[in-house]
Design a protein around this nucleic acid. Structure first.
Length: 429
RNA sequence: CGGGGCGUAGCUCAGCCUGGUAGAGCGCCAGCUUUGGGAGCUGGAUGUCGCGUGUUCGAAUCACGCCGCCCCGACCA
């Protein structure tokens, strides 16, 4: 992508409404634009990151055996009346009337909808286990939306729903999601600590929330330092051990009753990016989601639901990865992998080398944002540092004379001078 | 919803107290110079001063009402 033809409205100064660093940086880097309280436009750069995160989540859900569907944002109230949640959910749910004055709502979650799909098509235990998920916009009319995309009213969520014949099966489904979540966050460069949690309005009796450690996080968290030695991207995660390790948010943490000795207890701040629930027959019972079991009897299915805040992750990753100059994206979620800067578009030797590199990087399958603008060096460097692409490649008259370009790794700041061929090797390896 | 604050140019803000018809920096447009870390000079464009009502000869400024946004609190992916 040529920056001269792109839409990247960066801001030199942060708009006054933004308080926390991820919100300020998302606005400054031209990723989002606020439309109303807790409701945002996603501009090209932000949208690319959202898609990257979404895709990682999708791949890990698929790997764990979940199957993607797409349910609508608008739902009829009938289903919610049937489950008993229409009255229970409260003003957080956006209720609307259609032209026929039928009660509708903008879905804050999809348990009812997915249970309806299930009951209409699944009749036998032989079709279980089943896990259906989708990645769709939700609306929760929060009392106080804040922190940009971290607590929006409209937000993108991945929600998965498992169906099993019995509690033991449901536990296996739960554990599979538990592991998939750890892998998902690890792929984005995040350490997410699973913490025992209240199940809240979703209901149920087994629940974990996944907290990303970040200094600017909202919740205070306490956890066994044993978590720090765990490689969450490992293939053989021991779920039972992870569940047994202590971790709690401050509202549940009681220093007097904490089972972890002080020298092993770590305190920090966290951002909740995922939450998983096992709730048995809470929805299958009132909505009649049953299958015929092996013994010929009708059985209400055991369910769980599993949420990841996809749009919140964009903010959470920035909270974890930024410095004084801007964002420092982990490579898997960066909007582009490489920022190619031509310092002197008016110089034919620079332009020739930059254009050639641009073509070759693209041919090698690397996502490049090519700054071919007629701007001064400082402006270009500042823009690149702000948007935080993992690698910056600078083509300038100084290096071109010797047939070299400069490679800068954004996060470490490490620079090296390389010939174009070695650069391509470095970036494609 | 309770408490606090803010709404003036695209962005950051001054002006409001003490009423006289709107400014700065950055950005934008044009030209010249400059060119390895947010350049310099010259010229130029850009505002229903959030909305409404009232007071007044006169309102960005004073009063009242409304709307929007931000921060703290309870809630959540």
């Amino acid at each position: 992508m040529r920056l001269s033809r792109y839409f990247l409205p960066v801001l030199k100064e942060a708009p006054a409404e933004a308080e926390i660093v991820s919100h300020r940086l998302m606005l400054r880097a031209g990723m989002i634009q606020q439309l109303a309280a807790g409701i945002y436009n996603w501009l090209p750069l932000g949208f690319r990151v959202l898609k990257k995160i979404e895709q990682i989540v999708r791949e890990e859900m698929d790997r764990a055996g979940a199957i993607e569907i797409l349910m609508p944002t608008i739902q009829p109230a009938d289903l919610w009346i049937e489950s008993g949640r229409y009255d229970a959910y409260g003003p957080e749910m956006l209720r609307i009337l259609d032209r026929h004055e039928r009660k509708m709502l903008y879905g804050p979650t999809n348990e009812e909808n997915v249970t309806d799909i299930f009951r209409r098509h699944v009749k036998s235990y032989r079709q279980l286990p089943l896990n259906l998920y989708h990645i769709q916009w939700k609306f929760r009319d929060e009392i106080r939306p804040r922190f940009g995309v971290m607590r929006g009213r409209e937000f993108l969520m991945k929600d998965a729903y498992s169906f099993d014949l019995d509690a033991e099966g449901a536990r296996r489904s739960y554990d599979a999601m538990f592991v998939a979540y750890l892998r998902t966050f690890a792929r984005m460069g995040l350490t997410a600590i699973p913490m025992q949690a209240e199940s809240g309005p979703i209901g149920g009796n087994m629940s974990h929330e996944f907290q990303i450690l970040a200094q600017t996080g909202e919740s205070h968290v306490y956890y066994d330092r044993a978590f720090e030695e765990i490689d969450f991207s490992a293939a053989d995660l021991d779920v039972d051990r992870l569940k047994s390790l202590y971790a709690a948010t401050d509202d549940k943490h009681d220093p007097a009753r904490c089972p972890v000795p002080a020298e092993r207890l770590r305190a920090g701040r966290g951002i909740e990016v995922g939450h998983i629930f096992y709730f048995g027959t809470k929805y299958s019972k009132p909505m009649g989601a049953t299958v015929t079991g092996p013994d010929g009897r009708e059985v209400e299915v055991e369910m769980g639901s599993y949420g990841i805040g996809v749009s919140r992750l964009v903010g959470a990753i920035i909270e974890a990865y930024h410095d004084e100059h801007g964002i420092t994206w982990p490579r898997p979620v960066a909007p582009f992998e490489v920022g190619l800067v031509n310092l002197r578009p008016d110089d034919s030797a620079c332009a020739a080398m930059a254009e050639d590199l641009y073509r070759r990087l693209q041919a090698a399958g690397i996502e490049v944002l090519y700054d071919d603008r007629d701007e001064r060096a400082g402006v270009k460097f500042a823009t690149m540092d702000l948007i935080g692409l993992p690698f910056q490649v600078t083509v300038g008259p100084r290096g071109v004379k010797e047939g070299k370009v400069e490679l800068k790794e954004r996060r470490s700041g490490a620079r090296s001078e390389l010939a174009p061929e070695s650069l391509l090797d470095r970036l494609t390896s």
